[in-house]
């Protein structure tokens, strides 16, 4: 089967739709997923196609959205629950951390929790402090969860299908800014990208740029600009914060001996911190420069456009970081 150019939103919709057709146990729930067609229109047409039994609008109740998904998954269904934006996942945090992640372990494997918690993520246009979080590393902190975040339409389809088919709980983050971005997407209904497998988005030999989600785009743009200056960057898209494809990162690092980490999230106790620690623990003998981190600034995001942009990562900041390690 061929590829078709689709925006990420449609790639996700197709993944979800195909999985619902394939497996009767898969259902969706969340705020506005039905009659409203989904806040981000990923579930457009689902209520009509699958009916109210499998497309369940919920009250504005993040604790019970996450928690009821856990219970129904333990009981044998395969919920795909939607949190309108990940900022609101904080309200359901206990259900996610204490139960979604831990019921399997706590009861010694008596239960499986085959669920996906889809969250729209990333800062937007002046969305301000409460609505601009990209907090995936917080969730990736906890054993028991998988955390994935695709950087393009193709990956979005393959990763979401993997998440739905897996027997473990997955927090699946979708960058709002990427929803409209088109890319080639396989039409094969069994196109699945394995959980925990990263991807080299651009091969190179001088510097390894490790990123995920929206950071991949900045990294690729930076790499294209740097190429003109004779610097050859390798861009590693980890795709999954947990399980983390450290093997892929290390393989790249052994070749380049230099690393820049690019993320949209905050700098303290971050993805960047983790990658830097992993590299110095495991790759010390290969290091030719300190690991450099590019992230949002350590501030809550403001409203005014100029200072909002000042606080955020961008291509220029990635280019500058690469230049510091070569």
């Amino acid at each position: 089967m061929a590829d078709k150019v689709l925006p990420m939103r449609e790639a996700l919709r197709n993944a979800l739709r195909e999985e619902m057709i394939r497996d009767e146990r898969v259902y969706v729930m969340g705020q506005e997923v039905g009659a409203w067609d989904g806040t981000h229109k990923v579930t457009r047409g689902f209520l009509e196609e699958f009916g109210a039994r499998r497309v369940r609008d919920t009250p504005i109740s993040e604790m019970v959205i996450a928690g009821a998904a856990v219970g129904s998954a333990m009981a044998g269904l395969r919920p795909v629950a939607e949190i309108m934006t990940i900022n609101f996942a904080f309200v359901g945090m206990d259900a996610i951390i204490n139960h979604m992640a831990k019921v399997r372990y706590m009861f010694n494997g008596q239960f499986k929790v085959p669920m996906v918690l889809r969250c729209a993520t990333g800062w937007g246009n002046q969305a301000t402090a409460t609505h601009s979080h990209t907090p995936e590393p917080i969730f990736a902190h906890f054993p028991g969860l998988y955390v994935g975040m695709p950087s393009n339409a193709r990956d979005a389809k393959g990763m979401l299908k993997a998440a739905i088919r897996d027997d473990n709980p997955v927090l699946f983050s979708e960058v709002i800014a990427l929803y409209p971005k088109p890319g080639p997407v396989p039409e094969d209904p069994d196109f699945v990208l394995p959980i925990g497998k990263g991807d080299i988005k651009r091969p190179g030999k001088d510097v390894t740029i490790v990123s995920f989600g929206r950071g991949v785009e900045w990294s690729l743009d930076a790499a294209a600009a740097l190429e003109k200056e004779g610097v050859d960057c390798e861009v590693v898209d980890v795709r999954w914060l947990r399980p983390l494809d450290t093997a892929l990162i290390f393989e790249s690092f052994k070749k380049t001996n230099r690393c820049v980490v690019v993320e949209e999230s905050l700098p303290y106790y971050s993805f960047g911190s983790e990658i830097a620690a992993q590299i110095q623990e495991h790759m010390f003998d290969y290091m030719d420069a300190p690991v450099k981190r590019v992230s949002a600034m350590d501030v809550p995001l403001p409203y005014a456009r100029d200072i909002e942009l000042m606080a955020l990562p961008n291509v220029q900041k990635v280019i500058a970081a690469v230049k510091e390690v070569i």
Partner: peptide, 16 residues
């Protein structure tokens, strides 16, 4: 209170 949404979810399986 943490088990109450799980109860709802288990009941949803029965209903579903």
């Amino acid at each position: 209170g943490g088990h109450l949404p799980l109860a709802a979810g288990i009941a949803l399986k029965s209903k579903y």
